[in-house]
Nucleic acid binder design. Structure first.
Length: 434
RNA sequence: GUGGGUGUGGCCUAAUGGUUAAGGCUCCAGGUUGUGGUCCCGGCGAUUGUGGGUUCGAAUCCCAUCACCCACCCCA
């Protein structure tokens, strides 16, 4: 089909982030970065694209993420690559590749970036999504699990989010999970007929997922079934209770929920999720867990790790719902208004001088009326406007006007060029402290 | 992937199947020649998401498609 007429638009489930929103994202990123800093975590950036094996080996061949949600393609050299659907595997790969085991352990990292999942879009669910996350690799201490939860909790607090519920569980290690799955499956077989069709299918492929089924009848059946926590061995139980003790010490509220299993196969021991109390559709705002077998699956030495990821779009959704999205668009400090060609030429130099001092200056175009420019200056919310025409050029001055003062109270002031920088700095400083 | 809802200028909204698709906001421009936030006035801007069909006539009815939204699913 000829597509001359077809309007180009952003791909499904992907969107442009325009200025008012982009400032919100920037602000959230800053808060993430700052909270991570207080825990001495350091930023890592990994490629958006990885060898498909990075994910297929770790996330779990049976998982939906691999089965149907991953963007996979062959590059021109015939390499099978994937757009990253999550970042724990990529960070693990980088840890191995760069021999980070020779650094003091655990290595504490954070990231903020885009991820891709070929899923049917919905509010809070995108094909290109943004996540902030952390990984602490190289320690099996339960204190790191608690640290991750602590960091995540502090982040939500710093963002001002309220009413988030932390659900936590332990799924032990491979052996335990095997024993549990066996018992769980045996139990479910007795109710096979009553289970939802989806769950009947998962009985074979991935029984653990039946735990968080939303079907009422499934839930009722699961409720009376075996609990994974009862299958933990001594060490696993000790690990989990140690995490809980730390949370208690930190005053972090939590709820033990045996239905939390997380979707990705690499998790072990502690797993958790944060979601709004007013749950519903795309409710989970962030989740994490320990993944002691992951690095080995990637071809590295056995190395434990723990981390979480949280969805920026979902954070924004919840912040918006709680009225936390303030206007974050930065305002210019100064608005330049050329009144004549000579004035314009003089202002070009003055403008750049101020910019080099760190002042944000918007320049008004030559040729528009002074009235139009004054209107523009006003709607830009600049602190002051600077005008220059033939008169100012002759006197080597500019006219300074305070836009925030109530009109009529303050008259324009003529300022000699050599004193302008000092005056601007002083004015802006006063403005910020007030 | 399954089922359903919606789709009118950049944004919000109007238009019993019947003339050139109406209004508000934004944007641009004027209201005496170099001065703003209120007000007044003017203007730019839409083949009604796209493509077909029914009809003398379609924004309106039908089909398809795309996008968003809801539930499922999945997860962030």
């Amino acid at each position: 089909m000829a597509s001359d007429k077809k309007r180009l638009q952003a791909p499904r489930g992907m969107r442009d982030v325009l200025p008012p929103d982009s400032h919100v994202v920037k602000r959230i990123r800053d808060i993430c970065s700052n909270v991570a800093r207080t825990f001495d975590y350091h930023e890592i950036t990994t490629p958006l694209v990885e060898d498909v094996g990075v994910f297929s080996r770790t996330v779990g061949e049976e998982s939906d993420l691999i089965q149907k949600e991953m963007y996979v393609f062959e590059d021109r050299g015939g390499e099978l690559l994937a757009l990253r659907p999550e970042n724990t595997a990529g960070v693990g790969r980088a840890y191995i590749e760069h021999g980070m085991k020779s650094q003091p352990q655990p290595v504490r990292l954070w990231y903020f970036g885009s991820f891709f999942r070929y899923d049917r879009p919905q509010a809070g669910r995108y094909r290109q999504l943004t996540q902030f996350g952390i990984e602490a690799i190289g320690s099996n201490s339960p204190s790191l699990d608690a640290e991750a939860i602590n960091l995540q909790s502090n982040l939500y607090e710093a963002l001002g989010l309220r009413g988030l519920r932390l659900s936590i569980n332990s799924i032990g290690t491979g052996h335990t999970r095997g024993r549990f799955i066996e018992a769980f499956r045996d139990y479910l077989q007795k109710y096979r007929e009553e289970l939802s069709p989806e769950s009947q299918g998962r009985l074979v492929t991935n029984p653990l997922r039946i735990l968080d089924s939303k079907s009422e009848t499934d839930r009722a059946i699961v409720l009376n079934g075996p609990k994974i926590l009862d299958y933990l061995d001594g060490d696993e139980t000790k690990h989990f209770s140690s995490v809980l003790r730390d949370l208690d010490s930190l005053g972090i509220q939590y709820e033990i929920d045996s239905s939390i299993v997380r979707g990705l196969d690499y998790y072990t021991h502690t797993v958790w999720e944060f979601e709004p109390e007013t749950g519903g559709g795309q409710s989970t705002i962030g989740g994490g867990g320990r993944y002691d077998g992951l690095l080995e699956q990637l071809g590295g030495d056995p190395t434990p790790g723990v981390g979480f990821a949280t969805g920026i779009e979902r954070i924004i959704l919840n912040m918006d719902g709680q009225g936390l999205l303030e206007e974050l668009t930065p305002k210019p400090d100064v608005f330049m208004i050329p009144v004549s060609e000579a004035g314009y030429e003089m202002l070009v130099g003055v403008t750049n001088k101020l910019r080099k001092l760190g002042v944000s200056v918007r320049s008004g175009e030559l040729g528009r009326s002074v009235k139009a420019l004054m209107r523009a200056a006003n709607s830009s919310d600049a602190t002051i406007a600077i005008l220059a025409g033939d008169f100012e050029v002759k006197e080597r001055t500019v006219t300074v006007k305070h836009l925030r003062e109530s009109h009529g109270a303050i008259v324009d002031t003529q300022v000699v060029l050599s004193e302008l920088a000092a005056l601007i700095k002083e004015t802006l400083l006063l403005n910020k402290t007030s």
